[in-house]
């Protein structure tokens, strides 16, 4: 059924995966910076990071996407569709990730930090060598879930004309009218990528909770 549609859809799938990876990289960096920023001893940095997180979590990712693509050029900043897509998706997921980073850092037992102080570690050393390695383990499952959400969110950038998988499917539907086959393939292809990720995240979750119990 409709094997001839696959090459076009798979070309789109390549772009979907590129978008996912590029946005995930941006989100990871932003999440670490903003998550640490929210725990900063300096109030202006806390406020800045907090505002970023609340604005990007409080509005729709689609609205952010449109804003970056349509409104930003009027400030003289012109982004191509791919850059606007990566920026909007990365900053959106980064805001959710920042909360994960903050939560994980706060959940490291107080005794660990006290032990660091007792051993005369500096604040930076304590963060880098004691707190972050332990917090990082706890961040993994939520980060995995964010990655799956991100993969699904890349479908939205079809609306700003990036030819990823959903866009290719939609155009094929318009030109060939073979609605049933196209959308079935589209659903199956997303499922084929997302579901193994879900299983992977669950496996990591089990290992992390076993690690935390130990």
């Amino acid at each position: 059924m409709g094997i001839d549609l696959l090459p076009t859809l798979l070309r789109g799938a390549g772009i979907t995966i590129q978008l996912t990876l590029a946005s995930a990289a941006l989100a990871l960096v932003v999440a670490l910076i903003a998550g640490l920023g929210r725990l900063s001893p300096w109030k202006p940095i806390r406020i800045l990071a907090g505002t970023y997180v609340e604005v990007f979590r409080g509005t729709s990712v689609l609205v952010q996407l449109f804003w970056f693509y349509f409104a930003l050029p009027l400030f003289g900043i012109r982004l191509d569709a791919f850059a606007a897509g990566v920026l909007a998706l990365g900053l959106n997921v980064g805001a959710y990730g920042a909360e994960t980073v903050r939560g994980s850092i706060l959940s490291v037992p107080r005794g660990q930090i006290e032990a660091g102080i007792a051993l005369n570690f500096s604040a930076a050393q304590r963060m880098r060598r004691i707190v972050l390695p332990q917090a990082f383990v706890m961040m993994l499952p939520p980060f995995g879930n964010n990655l799956i959400e991100l993969l699904k969110a890349t479908a939205l950038v079809s609306l700003i004309t990036i030819p990823e998988m959903t866009f290719e499917g939609y155009s094929l539907q318009m030109t060939t009218g073979r609605t049933n086959e196209i959308f079935l393939w589209l659903l199956l292809l997303y499922f084929a990528v997302a579901y193994p990720l879900t299983l992977g995240v669950r496996a990591i979750e089990r290992r992390v909770s076993a690690f935390l119990r130990a």
Binding site: K152, A155, T179, F183, L187, F191, T198
Partner: peptide, 18 residues
């Protein structure tokens, strides 16, 4: 699992076109 693993946008297209 299937609904959770596929994008809402595609699901909306499916309902809207099919």
């Amino acid at each position: 699992e299937f609904i959770r693993s596929t994008p809402l946008l595609v699901q909306l297209y499916v309902l809207y076109f099919i």
